[in-house]
């Protein structure tokens, strides 16, 4: 269990009731290790975002269990009232668009969550600058998001996701708005982060070209979630 970052057991999600009941995820049982970059690939409407939000403690599953690291957070009900604290402390989010807070500059965007977690402003700034330096945008620290390019903003968003030293990064189509070269750069960057910082990364993508860069693939077929190796996915051995 020491090496497991995410574990789900018989995770089920239904929307609605009675005649209007819609079954989205019927059985999600998988484990993701620390340091792994996992692609979540499935057709639109298959339930990728639903699965991501259940793991991110945003959406309440209908039944099942979820572990984040060693902490069991869901067992047919949330085991903590502080879901937001769990998100703040354990999870980093990256979205399709950068979704930086437009009225905060780059360094303020990156230091916001660490400060809420109790890190001093000085320490948070120091670590944020290191992160920005890592992504090659240290000189943009005092710029507003509106003054940066799309690629620069996405790098700030990744820096923000890492600023709280998360155990898990949930990335919802982080390359959708980027060209193929930048997409590869971002995925390579996520892979590097996963290895160097021992973080589990789940990345929703539609781009099959990104699959070889990942360690494993999660896919959803007929409401069931499959956790496949790259070869298994390529050979369609299970799905």
């Amino acid at each position: 269990m020491d090496n497991i970052a995410i574990k789900t057991q018989n995770l089920v999600k239904h929307f609605g009731k009675g005649d209007t009941l819609v079954e989205v995820i019927n059985d999600a049982t998988f484990e993701i290790k620390k340091g792994e970059l996992v692609a979540l690939i499935a057709p639109s409407g298959a339930g990728k975002t639903t699965l991501l939000m259940m793991i991110g403690c945003v959406l309440t599953p209908t039944s099942g269990q979820i572990w984040l690291g060693e902490e069991k957070v869901y067992d047919n009900k949330w085991l903590t009232k502080e879901k937001r604290r769990i998100r703040r402390e354990k999870i980093g989010f990256i979205f399709q668009a950068h979704y930086l807070i437009p009225f905060l500059n780059v360094i303020e965007n990156v230091t916001l969550i660490p400060q809420i977690n109790g890190v001093s402003l000085k320490e948070a700034k120091k670590e944020a600058l290191e992160l920005l330096d890592y992504f090659g945008i240290k000189d943009k620290a005092n710029e507003m998001p509106a003054n940066l390019s799309g690629g620069q903003n996405q790098r700030v968003a990744i820096a923000r996701a890492l600023a709280n030293k998360p155990e898990i990064i949930l990335a919802d189509e982080p390359t959708a708005a980027l060209d193929s070269k930048r997409s590869v750069d971002v995925v390579k960057m996520l892979k590097k982060i996963a290895i160097e910082q021992s973080v589990a990364v789940i990345m929703v993508t539609h781009d099959e070209a990104m699959v070889p860069l990942c360690d494993r693939v999660l896919t959803i077929k007929d409401k069931k979630v499959y956790n496949l190796s790259i070869d298994e996915y390529k050979n369609k051995t299970v799905v």
Partner: peptide, 16 residues
């Protein structure tokens, strides 16, 4: 509201 939703998703407490 989008920024507020993002802040809530990132874990910013309601009080803030």
């Amino acid at each position: 509201i989008k920024e507020i939703a993002i802040m809530k998703l990132l874990g910013v407490p309601n009080s803030l």
